[in-house]
Write a protein that binds this DNA or RNA. Structure first.
Lengths: 340, 340
DNA sequence: CTGTTAGCGCCTTCAC
DNA sequence: GTGAAGGCGCTAACAG
């Protein structure tokens, strides 16, 4: 591990190669005005000392690091993981490095505070730009570009990428209605999140379009967790006239709903149809395989990266709001009413 | 988003507060020799300008950033995710920041090269120490502490954390033998990885202990992926005398084996028992719920972090090799031989 | 082609 | 208790 030796600097390389520091710098940055034998010699010394220039020093001088930052609420949450996947793919193609920070679940500071903290920590210092996943804050004071994915509340000053939640919810509902369902329960997400609200609106609008009365008893507020959704579903299922289908605002909630159905002795999809939202990887493996609305989360990460890198390289954004398409994925968790 | 304004520096704060830069620096670093009213005033300006000191500049001077780096092969791989979870938990408690880098699946450079690249990029620059998950490289030239988790090959110069793979495999095999299985197939991991090898040795040793002959036909080499494991399992299941149980070197492989069994018209656990290794979160949800060896991956991340921070703060390591316990988790994917 | 010079933003003496 | 000066490792002018 060679812990003894202090970090090698550009000066060590210069001394060893018998040139000046600036020549080494030129070699490092592939400037073309270096004699080829000098170039070779310096490269050899760099190899030999296994020297890497200090990111800190480099960024301080040149204000360019080829690093982009990603701030996620929680590295273990599946939405974040999908985004990371997409970002990582794009980063690789674009020849950037990626740094990931976690903003969430911290006792001391709120998520919004931590987001701001990381943005200023990264921007103008270690990263050329930042992507923030489901930010709680709505404005960030920074000189470098910021792209947000699925912000909690509208974020008019930021470039944001968000799924067509309303359209996706419409598609899910239309499918259930086509299967003959008329009493359809809705398990919402956290009401303070715009994506949750858009899905709720989609639910309501779909019902209105088909002249089904919106029954407030059929709408319960979850929080995107399976546990809460399970309790919500219990309430829905013990209604005097229980729903024949449940549309959950995300897949976790759908899984909670299925668990509640099981506990109530109802089979899915036999006695209850369930649709989720997100299409997390587990959805396909779940039993029954979950019918859900895919929002191509990894694509959102990829697009965010491409846009961000564009901004870094000085392009003007075409728009401040990118809507990503959604698509209904039909699997085994729904069945036509009566069609046992 | 305030893109116009350039990043605020310590000088802006100093000017605004009517003090010198050094005084601001003192306030920033909580030195006690600042008059309380000066302190207040400077703090107010910092708030007002929402100033954050530049990580780059700070690290360059003080060689201390309170950031630790984590290098994972792939952010979307479940082993890495579990480690990230544990690291993140520990980081929070210890009041450090975390930076995550991805080393894997890059066309241009090998994983080992990328690991070295990131280590020197982070250490002695932006991070006070680094944790590397399943490193391919065995030595890193750096001045800052490095901790490795589950290195591919032995890494005598590094502080490493690794599960008791041999013992875990032993436990899994003893369980299968107790259930009456005598012909037990083994789907290995990549043979160049020490964890895979240790699990294979555990498999063999368990058989020897119970005086069961090790049949080379029952041992096939996978690569920790479900796809390859499926093919491996097909081969095992089409053996003249097919195994009644399969021990897979990780959960993904176990899932592949179950899929192969299903395609061959065999029920799990009715006709074939399957044990995995890892206990990834999906294992519990899988159908049938997977019996597996838990290696408490998140704990490994947590312990790695605690050890690393200890090293950063100047503690001497107690050992260079930390072995983390494993535990058999019995679920529904195994059954006694003949006990239909 | 290469060396010299001047900072980037910050922290750390050392004076006052 | 506070300011001024120097330098961390590096790059970007400017000389030669």
């Amino acid at each position: 591990m060679q812990r003894t030796r202090a970090a090698t600097t550009i000066r060590d390389v210069a001394r060893e190669a018998g040139v000046s520091v600036s020549t080494v710098s030129r070699v490092l940055n592939d400037k073309d005005d270096v004699a080829s034998d000098t170039y070779e010699r310096v490269q050899a010394v760099i190899q030999q000392l296994s020297y890497t220039s200090s990111l800190a020093a480099r960024s301080m001088r040149s204000h360019r690091t080829n690093v982009i930052g990603l701030i996620v609420p929680d590295v273990a949450d599946s939405f974040s993981i999908q985004v990371m996947k997409g970002v990582n793919r794009a980063i690789t193609d674009l020849d950037y490095d990626l740094i990931i920070y976690t903003s969430g679940s911290i006792k001391k500071r709120s998520a919004a505070e931590r987001e701001r903290h990381f943005v200023s920590l990264l921007n103008g210092s270690i990263a050329d730009g930042v992507i923030i996943v489901t930010p709680a804050a709505t404005r960030f004071s920074t000189a470098a570009p910021v792209v947000t994915i699925d912000p909690n509340t509208e974020c008019p000053e930021c470039l944001t990428i968000i799924a067509t939640n309303h359209t996706g919810a419409l598609a899910a509902m239309e499918y259930l209605v086509e299967l003959g369902h008329r009493r359809i329960g809705f398990i919402g997400g956290r009401p303070d999140l715009q994506c949750a609200d858009q899905r709720l609106q989609g639910y309501k609008d779909a019902l209105r379009r088909t002249y089904i009365t919106v029954d407030p008893d059929l709408i319960v507020a979850g929080d995107f967790s399976a546990e809460t959704a399970q309790q919500c579903a219990q309430r829905l299922l013990s209604l005097p006239q229980r729903p024949t289908a449940i549309f959950a605002a995300n897949d976790q909630s759908a899984i909670g709903a299925i668990e509640a159905a099981r506990q109530a002795g109802l089979s899915v999809p036999g006695d209850l149809s369930v649709v989720g939202f997100d299409n997390i990887p587990e959805a396909a493996f779940f039993n029954p395989a979950l019918t859900t609305v895919d929002q191509f989360i990894d694509r959102m990460g990829q697009v965010a990266t491409e846009i961000l890198v564009g901004l870094i390289q000085g392009e003007r954004p075409e728009s401040v709001l990118y809507k990503m398409p959604t698509q209904l994925v039909v699997r085994d968790s729904c069945r036509a009413v009566g069609g046992q």
